[in-house]
Design a protein around this nucleic acid. Structure first.
Lengths: 131, 131
DNA sequence: CTCGGACTTGGAGTGCCCTCGAAGTCAAGC
DNA sequence: GCTTGACTTCGAGGGCACTCCAAGTCCGAG
């Protein structure tokens, strides 16, 4: 089973432009297969890989680090510990980031609470006025 | 009490460059006070405001939306409902985002689990070999 | 009075990540 | 066989959020 770039775009949630860009930038494990006419043919394996790097990207990993990871995977067995270290370091960053965002969100929620009080008050006032 | 831009930078965790940039870009509630020589003097009120917009930024609100919010606050009382709507919409986006990132993180954790298995296996193998 | 360092402005530069355009090729339906 | 639309490459362009530079001013210490 293989997919055109348009199908791969739909399945991955990326644009065809972005898929070409990722490939150009060394984020894929190898060059994507081509049809006789030179059109890209994405395999399920490609899509699985794209799914992973999409997760990495969505959690804030920079392109160049995704590339480093791809290079490790590309260079075959034997560097699993390095790959693991990279992923674990990333996970830790993401968790820190999550905690920070959550804390900021709570502070914003507090602010929202204040406005809710005020807006309710204003509505009450209006109700009073219109009576 | 007032602070130079350098002090404000330390207190806010932003750089002096960024503080000037925010002011230029209309993110402050009003022009920052100046000393007789034209140097910026940040008040506690300024710092409180900067803290809020830092939280908004840290949770992913774009500069232009922070500016919209600042404009609402600047234009005085009466638009609390609008401010509230803006904040609530933002909170919802952030929560969605948090959920997505968390889901991605879990998938990455799963991947990490796989590598941990492999790396342990390799270590075992080495231990076996060296015996 | 002089020096060093912190500040000012306006505008240019940077890094990241796409995103698009131009010009050309190709495949499938009519 | 011809049109239509999807694909190709290469390179430029764009948005965002800073980040920095140049040239000049100002303040405080010695």
């Amino acid at each position: 089973m293989s997919y055109t770039i348009a199908e791969a775009a739909v399945r991955s949630g990326l644009t065809a432009h972005t898929l070409r860009y990722y490939e150009r930038d060394g984020l894929m494990l190898s060059g994507v297969d081509r049809s006789p006419s030179g059109h890209r043919r994405y395999t399920d394996r490609d899509l699985t890989w794209i799914e992973l790097i999409t997760r990495l990207r969505a959690t804030g990993m920079p392109i160049r680090e995704v590339r480093r990871y791809a290079e490790l995977v590309r260079s075959g067995d034997g560097n699993e510990a390095e790959r693991l270290a990279l992923l674990v370091a990333h996970r830790e960053r993401v968790e820190t980031q999550l905690a920070e965002v959550t804390a900021h969100l709570r502070a914003i929620d507090h602010k929202i609470g204040i406005y809710e009080g005020k807006v309710e008050g204003a509505l009450d006032l209006e109700r009073t006025r219109s009576r």
